[in-house]
Design a binder for these strands. Structure first.
Lengths: 70, 70
DNA sequence: ACATTATGCAATATATACTTGACATTATAT
DNA sequence: ATATAATGTCAAGTATATATTGCATAATGT
């Protein structure tokens, strides 16, 4: 599914996909596809993105949905 | 680097690498290499491991080290 | 209206996660 | 001493993340 949290975190920092891509060492397309939910990034890339945006893995990549008690 | 937190979380649940591997749908070798720090798992695999062990991404895969102020 | 920046979306190519199968080591149990 | 379970590791194969290039479009600025 789409990663809205990432898109929002990037908007908060006011940086483009291209700028974020440069900072974490991947291409613009890779960032675009992660935001679009088109694939499954590696852990190290997720960590690099989090650090670039001042967030944690749970902030950007953890869904609290189906593993919570009601 | 080695993922000691994962090894500990697995020990707390008292399940083998093989049992965890079966629950998350990968092979025993994959779990072994993640614990040994030999590679860079995908996000979806990390999430599956966390759910199988009742932990979050930050619990098992986030290092607070170099992004902290002194 | 035109230029520029940001984003979306393909096709093909390459690097690497992950599998499979096999063998070795360690620990525990009988 | 022997059997079994858990783990480490290696080589070869397959699947997929990521790169590269290119084109299209929307938004913003001049």
């Amino acid at each position: 599914m789409k990663n809205i949290k990432l898109k929002v975190a990037r908007a908060e920092k006011d940086i483009s996909q291209e700028e974020l891509a440069k900072r974490v060492g991947v291409t613009r397309q890779t960032i675009g596809m992660i935001e679009a939910g088109k694939f499954n990034p590696s852990l190290q890339l997720c960590i690099a993105i989090c650090k670039a945006l001042g967030k944690t893995l749970n902030d950007l990549f953890w869904e609290e949905n189906d593993n919570e008690e009601i």
